[in-house]
Computed example of a mutant assay.
Amino acid sequence: MAGQAGTECVQCGAPLSHPTGAARTVAELPSGRTVVIPHGREVVIGRRSEIPDIRDGLEQFDAVSRRHCLITISPAGDRVTVRDQDSANGTWVGDAPEEVAPDETRTSTLPVRLRLGQRVYVTLRPEGGES
């Protein structure tokens, strides 16, 4: 049975725990919809993400690869690591002018905006924070 993305395991439905006092982290998709991102677990950002709301929110964008990049939110919810998965159109973190090289890992503080290809943006931020 599939769980609710971000609050339950997407495979078994078990509740995901967040460190005491840590705010939940959300990904704001191009539509403005937000999706809770679990802390401490690698998550695929792309048209074939294991999180249905991310997959559905990005599948209309041909410039976004199926497995565009991997993100991991730190257990404290204050940082993210981003690793490009050899995407066809590149990944950029924040305002950095250079794209993330294939299989390179970049770390950034939250909130941060990811650019997938030339025109698709996903903002990672604490839930309730402004984008």
Rank of each mutant, 00 (worst) to 15 (best):
R115N: 06
L116N: 01
G117C: 05
L110K: 10
I73Q: 00
T107N: 12
G77M: 01
V43S: 07
T105P: 06
T7R: 14
P126I: 02
P102D: 11
E59R: 11
R33V: 09
A101T: 08
L70G: 02
G3Y: 01
N89D: 13
R47W: 00
P30F: 11
A22V: 12
V35N: 02
T107Q: 15
P38D: 06
L70Y: 06
E50D: 10
A101Y: 06
M1V: 14
T81G: 07
G94W: 13
I71K: 03
A96L: 11
D95F: 08
V80T: 07
S17Y: 11
G46I: 03
E50T: 09
T20W: 11
P15A: 14
G90C: 09
S74M: 05
E42Y: 07
T34W: 04
C69M: 03
R55Q: 12
P19K: 14
P30A: 10
T123R: 12
E127H: 05
A14Y: 13
M1L: 14
S49Q: 00
M1Y: 13
P19G: 14
T91S: 12
S108K: 02
G13K: 14
L124K: 01
A22L: 10
I54L: 08
G77C: 06
V80S: 08
P30S: 09
T20S: 09
V26H: 00
G32K: 07
T72A: 05
V93H: 04
V120S: 10
R67T: 09
E50I: 04
V64A: 08
S87H: 06
A27L: 13
D95M: 05
L114Y: 06
D53T: 09
T109M: 07
R66V: 07
A27G: 06
G32Q: 10
C9W: 15
T7D: 13
P111M: 08
I51L: 14
V44S: 07
D78S: 11
D84N: 13
L110S: 01
E28D: 10
E50F: 07
N89W: 08
R24Y: 08
T107E: 15
H18W: 15
T34G: 00
H18T: 13
Y121F: 15
E127L: 12
A88C: 10
E59K: 12
R115P: 06
T91F: 02
R24V: 10
V36D: 04
P75M: 11
F61H: 09
R79V: 03
S108L: 03
L124G: 03
A88W: 10
T34N: 10
D53F: 05
L116K: 02
T107K: 11
C12A: 12
G94A: 12
H18Q: 11
I51P: 04
L114G: 02
T72W: 03
T91R: 02
T123E: 10
Q118H: 15
H68P: 04
G94Q: 12
G3R: 08
G129N: 14
P38F: 01
G77E: 01
D78H: 08
E8N: 08
T34L: 03
P126A: 14
D62F: 07
T91H: 06
T105L: 09
T20N: 11
A63Y: 00
L114A: 04
T81K: 03
Q118M: 11
E8K: 05
G40H: 04
T109Y: 05
Q85H: 12
T81Q: 14
E42W: 05
H18R: 06
I37V: 14
Q11K: 13
G40C: 09
G129L: 06
Q4A: 09
